Simulated assay, not measured.
Amino acid sequence: MGPTPKPNDRKARRNKDAIPQTVLRWEAATAPELPDFRIEKGEQLVEFHWPERTREWWQTWIDSPQAEHFGTSDWQYLLDTALIHARLWRGDLSAAGELRLRVAAFGATPADRARLRMVFAEADGLDGGRGSSGAPSARSHYGELRMMPGGKTDPGAAAD
């Protein structure tokens, strides 16, 4: 029944990955400290000082739930990102776009985490798998409310 199926070489969708997935060996990595280093300022080298806000930002990433999944290369990329964060907090607003792109890759905002399909395990299990937000259900809140014939509600009507 129905039309003759297209030949396989003419189908737009084949439901398989065109490029095979590469499985990597997991390596646990510890977050590095923000390094001390010098930068060129004019003709001399001066000590670089991390803005306090960047130090707080770095600690936030170390303490984040995502951090337990970061490998060495992730921490190195995030360390380079800390330099961009420092530039922003020193007044270089041109760094904002690059910073946003980089932290999005790590799931910085709720929208980023949704795009990356990240969920918090604790929040996911709190409802016991019922899908409830924890607020009273509509049934428990409006359980006594009944529709009257003709579609009008009578607030004084007795419950069944």
Score class of each variant (00 low, 15 high):
residue 2 G to E: 11
residue 5 P to C: 05
residue 5 P to H: 03
residue 5 P to S: 08
residue 7 P to Q: 09
residue 7 P to R: 11
residue 9 D to L: 09
residue 10 R to P: 00
residue 12 A to E: 13
residue 14 R to H: 11
residue 15 N to S: 07
residue 17 D to R: 12
residue 19 I to G: 00
residue 20 P to M: 01
residue 21 Q to S: 04
residue 22 T to E: 11
residue 24 L to Y: 10
residue 29 A to R: 01
residue 29 A to F: 01
residue 29 A to T: 03
residue 31 A to G: 01
residue 32 P to R: 03
residue 32 P to K: 03
residue 34 L to G: 05
residue 34 L to W: 06
residue 37 F to C: 05
residue 37 F to Y: 12
residue 37 F to H: 10
residue 39 I to R: 05
residue 41 K to C: 13
residue 43 E to C: 00
residue 43 E to G: 01
residue 46 V to N: 10
residue 48 F to S: 01
residue 49 H to F: 10
residue 51 P to I: 05
residue 51 P to L: 07
residue 52 E to A: 15
residue 54 T to G: 06
residue 57 W to Y: 06
residue 57 W to M: 03
residue 60 T to I: 00
residue 62 I to S: 00
residue 63 D to R: 11
residue 64 S to N: 04
residue 67 A to I: 09
residue 67 A to Q: 08
residue 73 S to N: 07
residue 74 D to W: 02
residue 75 W to T: 04
residue 77 Y to F: 12
residue 77 Y to N: 09
residue 78 L to G: 07
residue 78 L to D: 05
residue 80 D to Y: 12
residue 81 T to F: 03
residue 83 L to N: 06
residue 83 L to R: 13
residue 86 A to C: 06
residue 86 A to N: 03
residue 88 L to Q: 11
residue 90 R to V: 00
residue 91 G to V: 12
residue 92 D to Y: 09
residue 93 L to E: 09
residue 93 L to G: 03
residue 94 S to K: 15
residue 94 S to Q: 14
residue 96 A to P: 01
residue 99 L to T: 04
residue 104 A to N: 13
residue 104 A to V: 03
residue 105 A to Q: 15
residue 105 A to Y: 13
residue 105 A to I: 06
residue 105 A to S: 15
residue 106 F to K: 03
residue 107 G to A: 11
residue 107 G to M: 08
residue 107 G to L: 07
residue 108 A to M: 04
residue 110 P to M: 10
residue 111 A to F: 08
residue 116 L to H: 08
residue 116 L to V: 07
residue 117 R to F: 07
residue 120 F to L: 15
residue 122 E to Y: 05
residue 123 A to N: 14
residue 123 A to K: 13
residue 124 D to W: 14
residue 126 L to C: 12
residue 132 S to F: 04
residue 133 S to L: 14
residue 135 A to F: 08
residue 135 A to T: 06
residue 136 P to T: 11
residue 138 A to H: 11
residue 140 S to C: 05
residue 141 H to M: 14
residue 142 Y to C: 07
residue 143 G to Q: 09
residue 144 E to R: 11
residue 146 R to I: 04
residue 149 P to T: 14
residue 152 K to F: 10
residue 153 T to P: 02
residue 153 T to S: 09
residue 154 D to Q: 10
residue 154 D to M: 05
residue 159 A to F: 12
